[in-house]
Nucleic acid binder design. Structure first.
Lengths: 102, 102
DNA sequence: GCAAATTAATGATTTATTCAAG
DNA sequence: CTTGAATAAATCATTAATTTGC
């Protein structure tokens, strides 16, 4: 169901980004933009408007959400990684017998 | 990342706080503690020791570092804020007047 | 194939922190 | 000590994916 965002149809209660819009936003994010300043938001919004109706606050929200959720994802990945590591470690790592002689 | 600090494994040269330890420390920080006195440090260290090996100096360093880093963070936010004000092009949206949405 | 029902994503709001200015 | 300003965390709400029964 490839919705074109509400670019043309324009009857939705919330902004629904186009694939092109998402692509551009993700590229900016990859380039290091995380909390764009007001003028950056204006500029980005202007570029995204070529693909459909959009407001500055949508860009603002997108970066907020994307940053937060990327962080959540990374956190989960780190937890899973360490859990795996710990489980394996229990097989490899035998505590040295503390050779207290006899 | 469920590292147990070096609570049990004790194979690291530097203190690595447990999640529980961090939680307790951050709660103390939220309660207003910034530069704990020697007595406070001793008390806190005693409570943290329940989760693993720790010394008073670790607590001391933690508060110093945490305070400094929170300041750095706020400073960066402050700079972003000034940039925003200077350009003043913002007005993405009106601050939501505490409208209740349930 | 197709909708109704259900689940997953994600846009939008609200809440709780922070430092520091007044 | 109180308040201003800006989030980031937590939550709410709506949309898209998908599953399911026919």
């Amino acid at each position: 169901m490839e919705n074109e965002g509400n670019a043309g149809t324009a009857s939705s209660s919330r902004w629904n980004p186009t694939k092109d819009q998402i692509t551009l936003l993700e590229n900016l994010y990859k380039q290091g933009i995380r909390t764009p300043s007001a003028d950056q938001i204006q500029h980005i919004t202007g570029r995204l408007r070529a693909y459909g109706h959009i407001e500055g606050k949508n860009v603002f929200y997108w970066f907020q959400n994307h940053k937060a959720r990327q962080r959540q994802k990374q956190k989960q990945e780190r937890i899973a990684y360490f859990n795996r590591l710990l489980h394996k470690t229990s097989r490899f790592f035998h505590p040295p017998p503390c050779s207290n002689g006899t």
